[in-house]
Write a protein that binds this DNA or RNA. Structure first.
Lengths: 229, 229
DNA sequence: CGCGGCTTTGATGTTCATCAAGTAAAGTGG
DNA sequence: CCACTTTACTTGATGAACATCAAAGCCGCG
């Protein structure tokens, strides 16, 4: 009866659902799931849109952002596969409180929210797993924002660079998926000062920069700045 | 069979559980629940402690705080009854990531976490309700922190005053339950500047101050400062 | 009563936003 | 493919916002 199982090779539903969900449920979810491809820059979903689907990121990288009370863009967090995308408001609101935009080519998988809730109602173990995942994701957002809040400009920029190096790319040289302006929108500073700080890091031989290419040369120093700078 | 039901007059479990939990489960939870009274200033639970109980606030007011990477106190949020207290890490960690302290005389109700999880595993509807509540609480923390992040000192202080006036006490004159220093730890500024800002509000006849007593005279102006200041 | 923590105000310097101005890069229509 | 426009990037100069340091009054508590 394996013909009914989801065949997506790297489908995260597998690891989410563990063994706690029946073959029947997997079948009904998988047969109606919709995959979408997005290119870098595409808006995946929009602040204010009604929440109809349970959406997760299969591949790529996205940013979550919102408009502040005085109409400026503010980036809430970045999410990679395995981090759920529609976790912030799915179970607590009718509409999205944030916009999701692809910052690298991405693939999403959409499930019908009603159907997921139906399974959740009937399967507490599945729901507990889901809750754990949602909690982990929101905890991380809260902690990251608190950490950034208490740092100065230099520490914040260092923190972002280390975030991409460690959590996203797993290497010290990488191509920044976002603009200087977006870094500023994430850490709550101006674009000019983000650039100035990057230039100083470069002058101090902590990083190398070629446009969007970043190469961390002195990781120890960068970590120290991130902690105490 | 009403003798088995929880008799706490204002027990939030009732509204949480709705009709989605059996009398048996209510009985077993209620017979082993433990109520605790705390006085203003008492530490209810401590960063690093293992999470053994599912804890909620029955009466009073508490603050959630943590120690930052460079050893300063940082206040994450304030919680009043009906906001769950042990919601940040309960389902995503073995240990608390934050300290909970009573800032007014408070009563908590402790349930065995294992038992709550047991019910959750067997009752998906209950777990979905729980997830909704957890999501609402974490969403609020995230949004509040994002709002504060993007404001200047004056806007942040105004925001805190309005928070207590509107969300906690429901009136424009109230006694501040926290010190100037704690306001500073919440909004990420220094104590001196919080005091200076309060003094300016007073001089501008926006508020009156007598020690911890606050009286908002010009609410409209304060709201405008909170939004655009 | 005296100690420690909270509060308050002032003076000073640092950090950061804003303004300005110019260069590079990237998309757009003919 | 090139002129054109727009957007991103960069640096410098200036002033505003804020932290830090210092000093003194206040208050609660042992």
């Amino acid at each position: 009866m394996n013909t009914f199982e989801c065949t997506c090779e790297r489908c995260h539903l597998r690891t989410l659902f563990f063994n706690h969900i029946s073959k029947n449920d997997i079948r009904s979810i998988c047969t109606q799931k919709v995959e979408h491809r997005y290119e870098k820059g595409d808006v995946i979903l929009c602040e204010g849109d009604p929440i109809k689907n349970f959406l997760y990121l299969k591949e790529g990288l996205v940013k979550l952002s919102r408009t502040t009370s005085d109409d400026k863009e503010q980036i809430i967090s970045f999410a990679k596969p395995f981090d759920f995308v529609s976790l912030l408001s799915v179970f607590s609101s009718e509409n999205y409180h944030y916009t999701v935009t692809a910052i690298e080519d991405s693939t999403t998988c959409e499930l019908d929210l009603g159907q997921v809730k139906e399974i959740a109602r009937e399967n507490g173990v599945f729901t507990l797993d889901l809750m754990t995942r949602v909690s982990e994701a929101t905890d991380r957002i809260i902690l990251d924002n608190l950490e950034i809040k208490q740092k100065h400009l230099h520490g914040r920029v260092a923190y972002v660079l280390l975030f991409f190096a460690q959590n996203v790319y797993g290497r010290d040289d990488f191509e920044l998926p976002i603009s200087r302006k977006e870094i500023a929108e994430y850490i709550g500073m101006t674009t000019e000062n983000v650039i100035r700080t990057l230039s100083e890091f470069k002058k101090d031989k902590i990083i190398r920069i070629f446009g969007k290419e970043i190469d961390i040369i002195d990781r120890e120093r960068l970590e120290s700045i991130s902690l105490h700078g």
